[in-house]
């Protein structure tokens, strides 16, 4: 597992937590349990009634258990994405 995250270190990542929340930030570190440290973290709050909101929350240490998915954020695609008009339900929580 540790090897699988190596390529993402120092890259902007998208983290989907099991409670349905989504964070973006810089992957600063990780360990074999997939606990991760995110820098410059922002929570992305999706809503079906208003535009996506971004809330800066600083440095986050996230327990691996609570992580569903970590994706590499393509900055070019991310800039092109029309989040201001993206009114969707937040991602569903993942029951374990």
């Amino acid at each position: 597992m540790s090897d699988q995250l190596r390529s993402l270190v120092d890259h902007p990542v998208f983290v989907y937590l099991t409670d349905g929340r989504t964070l973006v930030g810089q992957l600063m570190g990780y360990d074999q349990a997939a606990n991760v440290i995110l820098g410059k973290t922002h929570e992305r709050i999706f809503s079906s009634t208003e535009a996506m909101k971004t809330v800066p929350i600083g440095v986050y240490v996230i327990r691996g258990e609570t992580i569903a998915l970590i994706g590499e954020l393509d900055e070019e695609l991310d800039e092109q994405a029309d989040y201001d008009n993206m009114m969707v339900e937040p991602l569903d929580p993942v029951a374990l």
């Binding site: 699988q4 995250l5 993402l8 998208f14 989907y16 099991t18 989504t22 997939a34 992305r44 999706f46 691996g64 258990e65 992580i67 569903a68 998915l69 970590i70 994706g71 590499e72 954020l73 393509d74 900055e75 695609l77 991310d78 092109q80 994405a81 993206m86 969707v88 339900e89 937040p90 991602l91 993942v94 374990l96």
Partner: peptide
């Protein structure tokens, strides 16, 4: 329904989910 990840091209999925 799930456009949240359209800027993600590769990902790591935790086995437990």
């Amino acid at each position: 329904r799930y456009p949240h990840m359209l800027a993600v091209k590769n990902c790591f999925i935790r086995g437990s989910v």
